[in-house]
Design a protein around this nucleic acid. Structure first.
Lengths: 228, 228
DNA sequence: TTCTTGTCACCTAGGTGTTAATAT
DNA sequence: ATATTAACACCTAGGTGACAAGAA
């Protein structure tokens, strides 16, 4: 079984409609997809990987509405049918293959995974269409030592899906609240914080920033079960 | 077979008497120990590791002599018998185990290896006695798939020694020329360069800095054979 | 109007020798 | 006198969103 780490933060983003930046050079995800794994055979080899499947066959566009955040408090509209599918790449966790014991003894982090909108990317990054919705998937492959292991491919393969990690791929943020939550929670964006340069999120006081309440509430985030 | 990378730089340091800093927290080596590997079975698994053996059973001390570099152009004197041996730790290359094909397709770099003088170190760093001379060794272990693989430990094990990588462990540099060569060649020490902030060593003109001539001369460093 | 691209200041994270203070 | 330690300024390396300019 698999537990999603930082579930509270994922939930907070998901509630607003998570957006992930895609760039030509490749951009990491934030939050980072991280899991705790249980129940592996400690001595057996496993490959861990991720891929991304379209949530629907739609292309989205935004509508800028005047409001508190001029030109930024915008809403998503369906713009038509999805663009042709991108190359369905997968990202192997760089430690693959490794023993079950190795995978289970610490959080597995996919922080090397990068998203790009460059169809000709040759860095092995995940290629996505901007303005489309995606569902990350996590796969565990048992490395079968048997010679005819191909026959057992089905049973040596397990997929885990966390719906709260769905997101829209964008080249620039469309929802200003998403931007603010990224700035508030991603250490690398600390330069854009204008509130107290306090040690958020570590000592964040519940209620101080309504938007981030869910994240603030859970000091010991409870991981969610995966749809398997 | 194995080729030492940056042999020319190693030679230059070795000619002056290489020194490596050891700290409580652990310090990387410079130059970094890097090798190119040939002749592995591409499909077989190998473990790569390093250890460090005393070159002699002596403890050294320095004698400060007045000169061009006051209190720094010093010479090594034998100070007596070696201190009790440190725990003989080994450093496994973090990618171990991996297929021969993986190891051979690029330079293998031991840049995660750190040296410490802390006998109680619990970070898995290599523990060395300061003011003692050491010989780095590089080991290749073939992961034998046979059940009784222990019996073949001898033949599944190969050790490579490059004498030009010998060094004295120190807590502070003793030879000012070593300091200068480190500053000149280690990118992380660029802040201490006072000569032209030019792109040394890339475009270094042979002869301009006599001390670094050997390194400057070889644009395509020839690797040295290992004593095996 | 909407979306994409490239550059930038500002961060995180961590590898350098220097230096002054301390230990032996 | 010699050796070690810890704090420090200054780097490398690379992850942020802002912003202005360009493209569709």
């Amino acid at each position: 079984s698999v537990q999603l780490e930082m579930k509270a933060l994922w939930d907070e983003f998901n509630q607003l409609g998570t957006e992930m930046i895609v760039t030509k050079a490749g951009r990491r995800m934030f939050p980072t997809f991280q899991v705790k794994i249980f129940g592996m055979d400690p001595m057996a080899d496993y490959m861990l990987l991720m891929d991304f499947v379209p949530v629907d066959d739609k292309r989205y566009r935004v509508h800028s509405a005047p409001g508190r955040y001029a030109f930024h408090s915008s809403s998503w509209l369906v713009a038509g049918k999805a663009d042709p599918a991108t190359p369905g790449r997968v990202h192997y966790h760089p430690d693959s293959p490794a023993k079950g014991a190795q995978w289970m003894k610490q959080i597995v982090s996919f922080d090397k995974l990068k998203l790009t909108n460059n169809l000709l990317d040759d860095n092995g990054h995940i290629i996505l269409n901007s303005m489309h919705r995606y569902q990350p998937r996590f796969h565990v492959v048992y490395v079968d030592p048997r010679k005819d292991s191909e026959k057992y491919a089905e049973e040596n393969f397990k997929t885990f899906v966390f719906e709260e990690t769905r997101f829209t791929a964008v080249t620039a943020y469309q929802n200003h609240r998403i931007t603010q939550l990224k700035i508030a929670s991603n250490p690398f964006a600390k330069g854009f914080r204008d509130c107290d340069p306090e040690d958020w999120p570590r000592n964040h006081r519940p209620g101080a920033l309504p938007l981030m309440s869910a994240f603030a509430r859970s000091r010991n985030p409870v991981s969610s079960p995966a749809h398997q």
